[in-house]
Design a protein around this nucleic acid. Structure first.
Length: 704
DNA sequence: GGTAGGCACTTTTTT
DNA sequence: AGTGCCTACC
């Protein structure tokens, strides 16, 4: 099965693609030892920039060149992008077909492949994988059916999903999950009473949600892992089958795996050899249940295991590492980590004090253009990192205006865009007629049909035997021109259901006018062009189900770039020279010559949402650490002074303000580590400038 | 009663 | 860019 969702993001890696991975002289002693490790299980602690990815690539190549069949190696990563990068680099290093069968996936996509490959083993066939939007719709349905119980409790469907997902990912029971997530872990009688009141209601709603999923043959993200994990734990036959399928599992970003992922991985300790790579200082996913016990307790949990370390940094110059090291040292947790550069001192990092986001955006744009025109740099030499996707909006506007090509990582995905989902809904319904979420979207897409009427039509549709559902039958249920449209859409796909591309293109022809009407505001400029892309994506799949699921499990097909068609291949801007704008969370593994870290201001680092618990603040610290260590030669940290006078957040008490300032990560930063700058021109020694200097307030902070 | 359209609001991080 | 809430129309 071809996976076109792996459209390469390798633009920035092409230079390193050519090197032969297994030429061991390319590696240092520690890397070599890891690559050629001959024991059973290995945990490799690899600090930022120490050649982690390179070593995984080398390990896979080494195994293949020493006789392991490529299909018996599974590489697991967090994003499809990371997986494809590793796989492509291994393939590039090994001539011929030996490495072609090498598989790299996310945990979720891997589980999906296993479930699909062994339908009898896992007992799931023809299911639909649902994304978070669909989960929310389904949870709303669950809550709607339980109005009595739900009405009393002030908890939103999204919160219920978050609690449930947290519980499943951490494998903690519901009571304790509520305690941790809603009561900050408190264990007193008042808390316990509240928990006892909430828990039964939640349980009821979650059970309803589970039932709805079962009825409609849905699997959500967590289900994918659980289905595989549960089977492996309970069933020896399953373990036997999979032990024949795999000899080695290579896990990237081990520090970000959660107990559910460990639950999935643990049976493989007996089945094959684990090679897990991670860095506890870069653990930034605890909101998703990541637990660095998976790293810290590795040797206790896994018999026949060893730990090795990589700590020589090849990415950054020393002055960039100095500020990164300083940040970690200030932590009350001992990370016991100090990166040393192998590339000399380099340039001192800059802190750029700006008045506001627009000044920040303009400064960055001007610097990039200047370096591009006069400094011999390409756009791909720049990486811009932000705490949140939302914050980069003004920057993107300025880039568009100044014609700086960029690509965003993180944020809304291609297949999550409303107009794409509208079209996919019809495919989904034909793939799985029990898919009520898709039915509702399909029906309410038609002008004149709202939620109420759609529900009643859907009730009629579901009464039909699934084999009796036809375009004709639908127009029998839905009268008038609306029914005619529904029928036409249905037939367009149904007549071509064995040719996904044709299904998509004929459906689009039917829907185009209505789509243009619904999205009149930005149809021509923004949305219309996505459909040729969708058709070409579709071309690479042999069934509707595969197309829908692979799309949902992939996050690499961002909508940020302008997709361009070139022959039969999609070319997106990502293949051209462009700046990368990314959230820190999506930037793991990335690096760039010049790196901007946006808005390192109080309230953002750490985020004011995280104040209150040391664990959360420390996670924020690691987020900043990850950001700082992306830079190879130039690090520019910006900080906005108007974030201090928070007009947007209305009620900040003086005490809170003090807390915000004292928790601020750059507070107390030694002068020698950075150069403070202000943009030239519009920004002079005004009042704003004075505010900028006030950020380093000297408040002590007692973490004990 | 049901639907569509307009307005205001709001955004941590992701599979 | 999406969602929730209100209002005006069928």
């Amino acid at each position: 099965m071809t996976k076109l969702w792996n459209i390469s993001k390798y633009g920035i890696y092409t230079l390193s693609l050519k090197q032969k991975n297994t030429a061991l002289e390319l590696y240092n002693k520690e890397q070599k030892e890891a690559i050629t490790f001959n024991g059973k299980h290995l945990l490799l602690l690899a600090g930022a920039g120490t050649g982690k990815t390179k070593t995984i690539v080398g390990r896979a190549a080494h195994l293949i060149e020493n006789g392991t069949a490529a299909e018996k190696i599974q590489i697991l990563t967090f994003t499809k992008r990371a997986a494809s990068e590793i796989v492509e680099r291994v393939k590039a290093g090994i001539p011929g077909r030996d490495a072609q069968a090498l598989s790299g996936s996310t945990f979720h996509s891997w589980c999906n492949q296993l479930i699909t490959s062994f339908p009898n083993l896992f007992g799931a066939a023809n299911y639909t994988v649902i994304d978070s939007d669909d989960q929310l719709s389904l949870m709303k349905m669950a809550c709607g059916n339980e109005k009595t119980g739900y009405g009393k409790i002030r908890i939103k469907p999204q919160q219920i999903l978050d609690l449930f997902s947290f519980a499943r990912n951490t494998r903690i029971n519901l009571t304790e999950t509520i305690r941790i997530q809603l009561h900050k872990g408190k264990d007193d009688s008042e808390t316990n009473e509240e928990i006892e009141e909430l828990r039964p209601v939640l349980e009821l709603l979650i059970k309803e949600y589970q039932t709805l999923k079962m009825q409609q043959k849905y699997l959500d993200y967590d289900d994918l892992l659980l289905v595989v994990g549960n089977r492996l734990h309970k069933d020896e036959e399953a373990r036997n089958i999979l032990s024949k399928a795999y000899d080695y599992i290579l896990v990237d970003e081990m520090q970000d795996t959660n107990p559910l992922q460990w639950y999935l991985l643990a049976p493989f300790e007996k089945i094959c050899k684990l090679f897990c790579v991670g860095d506890d200082a870069q653990s930034i996913y605890s909101f998703r249940g990541a637990d660095f016990q998976n790293v810290h307790s590795f040797t206790e949990r896994v018999s026949d295991s060893e730990v090795k370390k990589l700590d020589k940094n090849y990415r950054s110059t020393q002055k960039i590492l100095d500020i990164s090291n300083w940040l970690l040292q200030k932590s009350p947790i001992g990370y016991n980590k100090k990166l040393t550069a192998h590339r000399g001192p380099g340039k001192t990092p800059v802190i750029l004090n700006v008045a506001n986001q627009f000044e920040e955006a303009n400064y960055i744009a001007e610097k990039i253009l200047k370096d591009f025109r006069e400094g011999g740099k390409t756009f791909s030499d720049f990486l811009i990192l932000s705490r949140s996707q939302y914050y980069t909006k003004p920057l993107q506007a300025v880039f568009l205006q100044k014609k700086i090509p960029y690509e965003t990582y993180g944020g809304r995905k291609f297949l999550e865009a409303a107009h794409i989902k509208d079209v996919l809904a019809i495919l989904r319904v034909i793939n799985n007629p029990l898919d009520q979420i898709a039915w509702m979207r399909y029906l309410t897409f038609i002008h004149g049909i709202g939620e109420v009427r759609a529900s009643s039509y859907l009730r009629e549709i579901l009464k039909l035997d699934t084999s009796k559902i036809t375009g004709e039958a639908l127009s029998g249920i839905i009268p008038g021109p609306e029914g005619g449209k529904i029928k036409a859409y249905y037939n367009a796909v149904n007549a071509n259901k064995n040719n996904v591309k044709l299904a998509v293109s004929s459906l689009f022809k039917e829907m185009e006018l209505d789509l243009a009407l619904k999205y009149a505001k930005d149809w021509q400029e923004k949305r219309k062009g996505d459909f040729p892309v969708l058709e070409i994506l579709a071309e690479h799949y042999s069934s509707l189900g595969e197309f829908i699921t692979e799309g949902i499990l992939d996050n690499s097909t961002g909508l940020g770039g302008t997709p361009v068609l070139e022959g039969s291949k999609i070319k997106t801007t990502e293949n051209k020279d462009h700046v990368i704008i990314s959230t820190v969370h999506s930037a793991k593994g990335l690096e760039a010559d010049v790196c901007f870290v946006l808005n390192v201001s109080p309230k953002t680092y750490p985020s004011s949402y995280s104040l209150g618990s040391t664990e959360e603040i420390e996670e924020e610290r690691r987020v900043l650490y990850v950001a700082l260590t992306r830079a190879k030669n130039e690090l520019i940290i910006t900080r906005t002074t108007d974030s201090l006078n928070a007009h947007h957040s209305n009620a900040v008490t003086p005490t809170q303000n003090e807390e915000i300032n004292s928790a601020y990560f750059l507070e107390g930063l030694p002068e020698s580590l950075v150069i403070q700058e202000r943009p030239q021109g519009s920004f002079s020694k005004s009042q704003d400038a004075k505010k900028a200097n006030k950020i380093d307030l000297d408040f002590g902070f007692d973490f004990s």
